[in-house]
Every structure is written in structure tokens, then in C-alpha cells.
């Protein structure tokens, strides 16, 4: 464990917590893409499938973190699609999620480390996570604005994988550890946030709201 990975995971936890708080406090999921949250839930379930296969004692942090990620993302989907369904902006959350899931699944079968079920699921989860934020960014471009709290959520969500890139550089240099698939997907994922990061740094930090077109 290194500082980059630690802060990356903390940033990821913060993002999940910010979104949950936003929906719970405002009792509304306006401006939140349900599809992105569904895709994240699928990512966690397919990536941590080993939790369900051979149950291991929960004492170690990693298992607890995996369970937190899975339960928090499923609970977020429950809030969006059931509890606060009336506030779900289905019209603007219109990016076809199939166009992300099918290519990720296909690519996972073509480019992977080992052709076995668990590894393919892990690879699928990595590829899907790289593009899972697209419906959310698409929704913001359609509505033309993002609530400040949603911007903070996106900043934390984007920073998590950006910090993981620093973690991979660190591990390459000090542990000569390389996970090419995760690195390539992580770089793609972070690049997708660049436009948003620019808006966040230039606007939200100054207390302004993000309104598109910038």
C-alpha cells in the first residue's frame, strides 16, 4: 500500500459518500445518472465476485472495503430507481448503456491476462469502469449544468483513478509491478474527466456553478 493508492481509495469512498448524502439529504436524484450508478454497481459485483464464491473472514480491510463498495452502490441504485424514482431525470439520462456494456464484454474476451471466468469478469469490470461515467457526463451536457454537490462527487470520482495512476507509477518504479490492462483503462478513464476537471478547477473552486456550454 502506498500513499497514492490510500488517497485514491479514500477519494473513491468520499465520492460514494458525497453522492449518497446528496440524494439522501435533498431526497432527490436530479442531475444524477442512474445508468452510471448501475454500471458502477455491475463493476463492483463482477470485480469482487470472489467475495461471493469463497466467503473469507471479513477481518481484513480489503474485504470490508469491497463489501462497502458493493452495498453502497447497490443502495444508491435503490435510492435512484425506487425510493426517489419520481426525481429521476430519465429523459436526460438517455445514453444507451448497452453501447458501453457490450464492447467492454467483447474486449474483455479478446484482450485479457488469462482466459478464465474470474479473470474475464475482472477484465470486463476494468473496461466497463473506464467508460461508466459517460452517461453521467452525457446527462450534464444535456441538462447544461451540474449542481455543485454533484461536481464535488465527480471531482472525487475522477481523482480516485488519477491517484491510482500515480500509484501504478510508484509500484512500477519501486516494486516493478505492472498491470497493463488496469493501467491503460485507468488512463482512458481519467482522460474522460479532463474536460470536467478543467471546468471544476476554473469554476467550482471559485464558487461558481458549472454551466455548459462553458
Amino acid at each position: 500500500m502506498n500513499i497514492f493508492r490510500l488517497f485514491g481509495d479514500l477519494s473513491h469512498l468520499a465520492a460514494i459518500a458525497i453522492l449518497l448524502l446528496k440524494i439522501w439529504k435533498t431526497r432527490s436524484c436530479a442531475g444524477v445518472s442512474g445508468k452510471t450508478q448501475l454500471l458502477f454497481a455491475v463493476c463492483f459485483i463482477t470485480r469482487y465476485i470472489d467475495l461471493f464464491l469463497h466467503f473469507v473472514s471479513l477481518y481484513n480491510t480489503e474485504k470490508v472495503m469491497k463489501l462497502i463498495y458493493i452495498s453502497a452502490s447497490v443502495f444508491t441504485c435503490y435510492l435512484i430507481f425506487f425510493k426517489f424514482k419520481a426525481t429521476y431525470d430519465g429523459n436526460h439520462d438517455s445514453m444507451r448503456a448497452e453501447f458501453l456494456i457490450v464492447p467492454a464484454a467483447g474486449l474483455a474476451c479478446l484482450i485479457n491476462t488469462k482466459f478464465d471466468a474470474i479473470e474475464i469478469l475482472w477484465t470486463f469490470s476494468i473496461y466497463l469502469e473506464a467508460v461508466a461515467i459517460l452517461p453521467q457526463l452525457f446527462l450534464i451536457s444535456k441538462t447544461g449544468e451540474a449542481e455543485t454537490i454533484t461536481s464535488h462527487y465527480l471531482f472525487a470520482q475522477g481523482s480516485y483513478r488519477a491517484l491510482y495512476i500515480l500509484n501504478w507509477i510508484y509500484r512500477y518504479h519501486y516494486e516493478s509491478h505492472v498491470d497493463t490492462i488496469a493501467i491503460v483503462a485507468g488512463v482512458v478513464q481519467t482522460i474522460l474527466y479532463c474536460d470536467f476537471f478543467y471546468l471544476y478547477i476554473t469554476k467550482v473552486v471559485k464558487g461558481q456553478k458549472i454551466v455548459l456550454p462553458a
Binding site: D9, H12, E62, M65, T113, K114, Y164, N167, D179, A182
Partner: peptide, 10 residues
């Protein structure tokens, strides 16, 4: 080759 390519990250 038994590559212990366990993915040890979240």
C-alpha cells in the same frame, strides 16, 4: 506458468 497475477488492488 502459474503466474500469480492476482489483482491485489480494489
Amino acid at each position: 506458468e502459474g503466474n500469480s497475477n492476482q489483482h491485489d488492488e480494489l
